[in-house]
Amino acid sequence: MSVSASPPLPAAAAPPPGRTRRGLRNGSLFLPAAVLLAAFFLAPLAVMVVRAFTDPQTGLQNFSWFFGDAVQVDVLIRTFRTALIVTVVCALLAYPYAYLMTVVGPLGLAVLTLLVLVPFWTSLMVRTFAWVILLQDTGVVNDVLGFFGLGPVQLIRTTTGVVIGMSQILLPFMVMPLYAVMRGIDRRLLQASSGLGAKPLTTFVKVWLPLSLPGLAAGALMVFISSLGFYVTPALLGSPDTALVSQQIFTQVNGLLEWGRGGAMGVIVLVMTLVLLAVSAGALRLLGGQRPEGRA
């Protein structure tokens, strides 16, 4: 049995006869989005990059300022670390949840979907303040812990508090792609696996996990990248010494009107993210490529 392919995606379907014409039509459908992206994403991005090298003078002063400032570098490392932790936490929570969504009946599915989406439709600000009230020293969580003779635990103003809040807010971005991919996995493969004598764990590791990997990768990407730009949640649930790079950029752009420095910080985060993505995409491909080979 071979489990080399990812779940069939529409794009992977056999090319229809009138391929070129369709491609053209698809191309023109893409045009409005392309124009929008160019005007409201690419152009501002270009301005930001130019600013980073030219404001207030042409040169690398904004970058040398950043890397010469230990605090800035610390915060940058902290940002990537926090994003990584949030991604792992989201994956651990979302994976079994998404699996559950694929095995329950229609009513169960509706309930589980709503449970993910209702918070998603609620304002980020509201949810963050709700977490403040839950996590603060005199908050609900500590009251409950106190009732059982535990705690109090310091949750707010710690990285733990920030990770809890961010994970809850970003969870839908992990659950949804995971669910979409898991739903498409052919169950008969699992039966075949156990029919061939594999234990449940083996079936999971060798069949289910690889097949769900694209969903996990997509979810992880979205959560990780969103985490890097989080502003309100770390500001309210954390303390200044858990501040992330977005807060530092805000200081430069809005507090000090140092747009060159702010731009440079944006460029640094962008470049680091792209490098990380390229590396992890490469690693994933390597992983995906190795597996069938090992089998062959």
């Binding site: 501002p44 991005l45 301005v47 985490s227 502003y231 309100v232 809005n254 944006g266």
Partner: peptide, 21 residues
């Protein structure tokens, strides 16, 4: 204060807004 995780992108986009304006 801001609401969305995209806040920062937006803030940096201010410069572009200026150009657009």
């Amino acid at each position: 204060m801001s609401r969305l995780p995209s806040t920062i992108r937006r803030r940096l986009g201010l410069a572009a807004l200026a150009a657009g304006a």
